[in-house]
Amino acid sequence: MSALAEIPVLSVNQLSIAVDNDGTPVPITDDVSFTIGRGEVLALVGESGSGKSVTALALMQLLGAGLRIARGEIVFETHDGFRTDVVRLGAKGKAIEALRGARMGMIFQEPMSSFSPIHTIGAQIAEVVQVHEKVGRAAARARAAELLGKVGIPDPVGALDRYPTEFSGGMRQRAMIARALICKPSLLIADEPTTALDVTIQGQILQLLRSLKREFGMSILFITHDLGIVAQMADRVAIMYSGRIVESGPVRDIFRHPVHPYTRALLDAVPRLGDIDRGRRIQPIAGAMPNIFDAPSGCRFHPRCPVRDMPRCAEKLPPRAEVEKHFVECIHGERELAK
């Protein structure tokens, strides 16, 4: 699957994002590195506060006030020869604006509030085309209608003149996808796009994203905390804990052979059919994720880790072990991967 192309569309290298705490920067993600190949879906998985959404926002230089990229690079390269380091582009100006919405698209968790309630759906989608391309209003509207049709909205031409409040949550998320894809971006960043939706609608949206991915030949960074979605959508997965990627690799490898104790704990926390018959109970992970202002030394998971080796785990960061694109950051990593 991931052998679609040699050069990844996105490679994030040692990205650190810091929050300004009364003048002193406190890192909220640390040394985050991953790549996304062409046509590939990478799932970035983690609990709330693990830094996954902040990482997604940083990819388009959309970090909020007080947050900034402290270190690292975000190399973005598309098939037409366009290559840039998003970190160097900065958060302001024409260069980054030309990238947003055109070469990278983004959809968000809240389809309810992602559209302005007082502008028509059509105006808000057509506007993206007009911002990026020299096209007239009529042509932009025609494109918007075409995209609305593609994302499965009935009567797309009529939908142009409707307001977001007239759409259901699922319809709004479809419209959001149309808005993100109208300029045919090479990378779609989807930040928990189905979290706010009913399970049945969730399935439809995932199905839609899969078919659009094939049609547009794009790559997707899928941010989620739902391992079920990872199994359905992703080619590869990266597990984030307290601002660091602790394990990453092809979905099959990770699901069949999780190595990091946090990944194992996450998988144990997923309910499965037949659990009750087998007398199995969901295993919650003891403790809570550390506060970023008070992060533990060494491996950040060690206070909650069932297999920790003290005091080694608390002294320094564990080394990164790798076997066939399966990366783990754990002192037991090497031994476990070899199994």
């Binding site: 030309a98 509030s113 506007e127 993206v128 911002v131």
Partner: peptide, 19 residues
């Protein structure tokens, strides 16, 4: 949220603000 999503669509700060 819609301001963030408009920024993610590439609108410049001024376009976005007034719109």
């Amino acid at each position: 949220m819609y301001v963030l999503s408009a920024r993610a669509s590439g609108l410049s700060p001024m376009q976005l603000l007034l719109r």
